[in-house]
Amino acid sequence: MTDAQNHKQAKKEIIITGFGGQGIILAGIILGKAAAIGEHMESTLVQSYGPESRGGSCNAQVVISHEMIHYPYVSHPDILVCMSQSGYDKLIQQIKENGTLIIDQDLVRPARELKRDFFSIPATGMAEELGRVMIANIIMIGFLTAVTDVISMDAAQKSVLESVPKGTEKLNTTAFKKGHDYGLATLKGRQKKAAGQAGAIS
């Protein structure tokens, strides 16, 4: 079974969590759209509303599957993306045992006793460098695309362009690429370290 088939058949449950105003729901929409339109899979999105949605914590639950989805709520995600400390604190216990944890290292400090491996990216800091904090969510999508195999680079990039406001395409593409490059660099670094080449002078 090739990797491509593999990620088509498996069902992936994803939660992106953060606070209102970060574009968490938009990130969920982009992910779902990429899967549905770009990869011809099924996808659902459930967003948390309520008193929390303005400034408080907020999350997007996305299910992506090759088969019909009967139940759209996610309680034990395969992939948990945390863009706020409170989101992390609330959901960290629920991630599946071999699930993938991704954090924005500028906003989340993982508990010291956390034993599992995780991916981290300074998405908010990078967004600030690009001049728009708002764009951290797109950087995160780029990063997620690179370090996991839920959606392809092509589908994700198209979906970003279709979902963001007109006139901001260039900035969003740059942000997506930055996140994606960061992801690839992270994977490369892990590979090199595993091969015992941590520095330039060995």
């Binding site: 990078m126 490059d181 960061y182 690839l184 660099a185 992270t186 670094g189 520095g199």
Partner: peptide, 8 residues
């Protein structure tokens, strides 16, 4: 600047 780089 692509990231995942640190300095001792």
């Amino acid at each position: 600047s692509k990231g995942a780089i640190d300095f001792k």
